[in-house]
Amino acid sequence: MSDHNQPVWVIAEQVRGVIPAVCLEIIGQARKLADDLGVLVEVFLLGNGISDQVDLLFFAGADVVHLGDAPDFDRYQSEIFTESIVSRAKERDPQIMLIGSTFMGRELAPLIAAKLGTGLTAHCIDLVLDENGILEQQIPAYGGMMSIICPEKRPQIATVARGVFPMPALDQNRSGKVLPVEPPKGINLRVQTLEVVHTEPKGVPLESAPVVVAGGVGAGSIEGWQEIQALAETLNAALGSTRPAVDEGWTELETMIGQSGKMVSPELYIGVGLSGELQHMVGIVGAKVMIAINNDAKSPVFEQVDYGVVEDCRVFVPALVEALKKKKAYTGRAAHVV
């Protein structure tokens, strides 16, 4: 199958009129892939009153923007969005389609793929071209990295989380062509979003936190988990978790770090009672200093951090929190005296 001239697509989205960072990051990566392939980057964006966002997409690397700007596109409606994307994709025949792993992207990607009869790879942590220009979609597996390819069907669709790729430099001189998208006609809507409710996120947001404390199975119980939570609070850090900690019900899915969770890039990462499985560790991108607390000296987590403490976290973490509190009180007093 020859893919000449078939563009690289990015499905962008807007949240209350703003393009989320992940969309710009994947446009940056799409630009690199498209340059290697010698093809265009085309971005698809739907919304209402969003034409002021189009320049940003060009600055990030788009050559063409398919823009649907209409009241029907005001909020995400799966059937309208799927139909609009699929019908334009059939005309333009993209070879690659990248979608952010947002809630919308995670629902839309499989709908688009199934409609187009093609494959897709979830939560990729890298995307590179092989010698034949086929997209290697990399995910962690079995303690290593697995490359998944979609050799025949097109487009090759991948979802990517925020923070996997760097934010591209925005080039204010770039511009491109806008192709309007009209709302699809005559679809009988069987599913309709009636209302979207936004709640204020609590605590320090993980993705931008300078310090992250993540806990795992080693917490042992909700009480053990609360100690880890207390450590995060004392350090003014964002609280992260491994998947089993979420499965135990100790914490919310939103705190999960890793391949199928969030990507973090803190100055300091402290992993408590977790084994350093790659699916978790790939979520920590470019942390400056990494520390692990684990009671098993042979735990693989110690091969992936700068400092290790071999201790039972249920004993060590409360002692650490206590000492940190004392230190804080002391420095607080000292500052006062001075």
């Binding site: 597996a141 490359s147 390819i149 979609c150 692990a292």
Partner: peptide
């Protein structure tokens, strides 16, 4: 299946770890 696994690669660990030794109090400090 439209997708297949094309390769599996072993990942080397990237960091040199210093294990902090001592009593519990020393380790905390």
């Amino acid at each position: 299946s439209p997708t297949i696994v094309s390769k599996l690669t072993y990942v080397e660990s990237k960091r040199e770890c210093q294990i902090i030794e001592g009593t519990l109090e020393e380790k905390v400090d």
